[in-house]
Design a binder for these strands. Structure first.
Length: 197
DNA sequence: TGAGTGATTGACT
DNA sequence: GTCAATCACTCAT
């Protein structure tokens, strides 16, 4: 089988909700020092300009600066004092939008991810934004990496999930007054590997 | 300068 | 169901 190509920069220049849906079925791979690991994106959320739930809503800070940077790069942030979350930056430089990858179906480096997670069940490896960062070992060092083939962290072309197999819901973990009712979460229907049933 | 909150998870009751 | 982990940021002193 031909090795898939990285998604081109232009993939990340469309509307961020379109990108969030289009990322389902694509392949996220980290060529870490310990080995290659990753899998198929099965759950994602869009974060937009003028979105009260976005880190960028209150303006640029050192932490959220990657969101304002060029498209097709990683934004990895630290949250709740002990977890990282991975985003793909969208839109042209200066427009702070991104897609949070919430879950992937593990396909590569499964034993490595089992060791990092200290879990054996495939469904427990990457079924949440913090979990997949632990499994792939994504952290500060991977922040701002180029996802289009220029670094160890890459999103490759893969399946295009038909719209009928994509479920749209509200985003997870947002408090009140935080655009909690915006339908910007997307996941693959019937996937075993999403963060919630 | 300090209290409050958060795009979370896992251990525990 | 509850709660601790304990960082980056916002907002109110």
């Amino acid at each position: 089988m031909r090795r898939p190509l990285p998604l081109p920069r232009g993939f990340y220049l469309r509307s961020t909700t379109t990108i969030a849906r289009a990322l389902l079925g694509k392949l996220l791979i980290h060529e870490s020092p310990q080995g290659r690991c990753g899998g198929i994106v099965v759950e994602a959320e869009a974060y937009l300009r003028d979105d009260p739930a976005s880190h960028a809503f209150h303006g640029k800070t050192p932490r959220n600066a990657p969101m304002f940077g060029p498209p097709g790069h990683a934004y990895v942030y630290f949250t709740y004092g002990n977890h990282f979350c991975f985003n793909a930056v969208c839109r042209r430089e200066g427009i702070a939008e991104a897609v949070l990858i919430r879950a992937i179906e593990p396909t590569s480096g499964i034993d490595l991810m089992r060791a990092r997670r200290r879990r054996n069940e495939l469904r427990d490896l990457c079924s949440g934004p913090g979990k997949l960062c632990q499994a792939l070992r994504l952290g500060r060092d991977q922040n701002e990496l180029d996802l289009c083939g220029g670094s160890v962290l890459t999103i490759y072309e893969g399946e295009t999930v038909p719209r009928k197999r994509i479920v749209t819901t509200t985003r997870i973990g947002l408090g009140e007054n935080r655009a909690a009712d915006w339908p910007l979460r997307f996941y693959v229907r019937h996937s075993e590997f999403t963060s919630r049933k």
